[in-house]
Design a protein around this nucleic acid. Structure first.
Lengths: 206, 206
DNA sequence: TCTGACTGAATGAATCATCACTCAGTCTGG
DNA sequence: CCAGACTGAGTGATGATTCATTCAGTCAGA
């Protein structure tokens, strides 16, 4: 009995929305987004999460690991959602449209997270390289595979390098997100995906 | 006689490639590119420029101002080059092709500068917003104006928002540059402009 | 031409505020 | 009472910036 309760507690504390770890990650996202990673003090994160400074170190090895965790958790989730979303579809164009929409939808739904992804994670080659090695490359690969599939079925032009073309698409979406953050006007991010996909698909269709 | 010699000396020390200010800027670009802005010590920059720590402060108010100066100097130069390059051209498509090539040519010619532009300048919303207000917006506007011109002459589709479309183009080029930096393989950046422009122009042409 | 006063660029050791991280101790549920 | 989650004051390192000092070069007067 006691045993199972402890396991539950552990589980909640690891994954649940009431857990300290989650709470620290959410707080850190907010703090990083507001001040920038290097200007954020661990003490600020602790205060925002309503825990003591030391508690942060019970859950994360270092300040840097917090940033990593924010990225890891979200990119893995995004890729999983993306794969699931396109599983039932057959038209490569539609697959890309859905992925693009999901991409901007997710970032548009949480401005703080978007800032961390678009701004803070870019702030050092070290991070860029580490991150690119992991989830980022996987995301690009997801796009690339769809493009290749479309080339095989002659939906997309075959004279283009799929890898390069997937970067073009990613770059266009990425810029939409970055501009949305910088701009202080209040518009919806996700509809931008339609315009991007219009131009892009028109450009790569056979 | 002596007087004119002094004026020459002053002029060289302000603008010439042998001047300390220039030398500090070049050194800073290298150091920022290697270590990242926040991990770079002013002392590192001073050593790389072969001057004393304090000398840096005779030319720049702060470490931050050094980063600003690197950006300001280069973006202004890039925009001027771009405008000059397209002045004699009439076809909007050709104008965009030339600008895109110039964009990647400049970054591809100086990896350190590219790292500062693609990575270090992105590392804080504060920088992003300040920079976007100045030169970056002007660059986007340059693209936008060409697109609008092309729409008027029915070269480009009129059903697209020129501002958004210019961001798509910028984002695609930007991603080429960023990927070139992250990737450790040794390829030329500038030819990527052709592929980008192929897809892009195909996508926006009427 | 020589000399002594003057200038201001350049120096780099010292200052001082800032944090990431630690750890000795407290609290609490069972 | 115990285990272990949690606390938060303290520590040590770091690094941007300052400023008293040096010294190479300029200049004016004799």
């Amino acid at each position: 009995m006691i045993h199972s309760v402890r396991i539950m507690a552990k589980k909640i504390s690891r994954n649940g929305s009431g857990g300290k770890r989650e709470s620290i990650l959410r707080a850190a996202t907010r703090v990083f987004a507001r001040n920038g990673y290097f200007n954020s003090k661990v003490a600020d994160i602790a205060r925002a999460a309503d825990v003591a400074d030391g508690t942060v170190y019970l859950y994360f090895k270092s300040k840097e690991e917090i940033l990593h965790s924010i990225f890891d958790q979200n990119i893995a989730d995004a890729i999983a959602s993306g794969r699931k979303l396109i599983r039932a579809l057959s038209d490569p164009r539609e697959k890309l449209r859905r992925i693009a929409k999901l991409h901007l939808e997710r970032l548009g739904a949480d401005r703080d997270l978007a800032v961390v992804f678009q701004v803070e994670l870019r702030g050092s080659t070290k991070f860029m390289e580490e991150f690119s090695a992991a989830g980022f490359a996987e995301y690009l690969d997801l796009l690339c595979k769809i493009l290749e599939e479309g080339q095989r079925s002659r939906v997309f032009r075959k004279d283009l390098n799929a890898k390069v073309v997937s970067k073009i698409l990613f770059g266009a979406l990425d810029e939409m997100a970055t501009n949305w953050i910088i701009s202080h006007r209040n518009y919806k991010l996700e509809p931008m995906a339609d315009i991007v996909m219009d131009v892009f698909l028109n450009g790569v269709s056979a």
